[in-house]
């Protein structure tokens, strides 16, 4: 038994090393940097300070975070409205058609996203007047992130046991009631992971807000970019990243918490 665990450990050791070097060390370094002092010659002095976090309490940063949050909520909301039914619909199709839809969703990924976004710019410029507006940013983000929502919902819905639905209907539940009591709780996991996969990136897809918003919409990601590329304030950039990481972690944690709630609710009925 003991020898078996040891050999198991050996097998996963590369994974541990990989995680350590490429995930943990950079994160720790970013956290470390966020408490350091910047110098005027664009480098970092290793003197402890809390100034970077104090700086983040300024209204300009707070309002940017709030704006990013609002945008992310809007994008996620639209993605749920469009993506959830689409995912359910796809799961119900016969296999051949399902594969077709799957391919149709995958095709755009074969083209570089910058190219796709450049074509959206051309389309919006030619046929509408909304280029360089908030709507243009939301529409493009919804488009860019929609596949993730559909995939997530689909992967949960495809495992859905139809007999449960049939039973509910036979026992007199209305269609809506059956959806609420059977389909929704059983696909909640997919929906939640879809929300995580759309919400978090939409706070940081800065190339979309830059290109479609005409430089007028600053996201949390832009703040980091500006500090790195323009102001060269590495510690402040690190501090923004840390705050964003904490925020992201909270969102994931909440969605993990919600999952058992959904399950419990199902059992209680």
């Amino acid at each position: 038994m003991k020898s078996k665990t040891r050999s198991d450990f050996k097998k996963v050791l590369p994974l541990y090393i990989f995680t350590l070097i490429f995930v943990l060390v950079p994160i720790l370094y970013a956290i470390f940097l966020s408490f350091m002092t910047r110098t005027n010659t664009w480098s970092v002095e290793y003197v402890f300070t809390l100034d970077n976090y104090r700086e983040l309490l300024k209204p300009i940063y707070l309002s940017t975070f709030a704006d990013s949050f609002k945008l992310a909520v809007a994008v996620t909301f639209v993605d749920i409205i469009v993506g959830y039914p689409a995912g359910l619909f796809m799961a119900r199709l016969p296999e051949k058609q399902r594969n077709f839809f799957f391919a149709a969703l995958t095709f755009p990924f074969w083209i570089n996203s910058i190219v796709r976004i450049a074509s959206i710019i051309v389309l919006l410029r030619t046929y509408t007047t909304i280029l360089y507006s908030y709507e243009a940013v939301v529409i493009t983000m919804v488009y860019a992130l929609l596949p993730f929502m559909i995939y997530s919902v689909y992967s949960a819905a495809v495992k859905l046991d139809n007999s449960a639905l049939e039973a509910a209907r036979m026992l007199g539940a209305s269609k809506f009631r059956a959806f609420l009591d059977i389909t929704l709780p059983l696909t909640a996991k997919g929906l939640l992971s879809g929300i995580t996969l759309t919400f978090i990136p939409s706070m940081c897809l800065i190339y979309i807000s830059d290109l479609l918003g005409g430089g007028k919409f600053i996201l949390a990601g832009n703040l980091i970019e500006n500090q790195l590329m323009k102001t060269h304030n590495l510690p402040l950039a690190a501090a923004i990243s840390v705050v964003l990481m904490i925020f992201t972690g909270t969102v994931i944690l909440i969605s993990n918490r919600l999952e058992p709630v959904a399950k419990r609710r199902r059992r209680a009925r």
Binding site: N40, K58, I60, T64, G215, F217, T231
Partner: peptide
């Protein structure tokens, strides 16, 4: 220019960008 002036520049610029929305 010096860092203090640059910081002022940054803050007025951010206010400007926000106002452009």
């Amino acid at each position: 220019i010096d860092q203090k002036a640059l910081d002022v520049h940054e803050s007025i610029w951010n206010a400007f960008v926000n106002a452009c929305q």
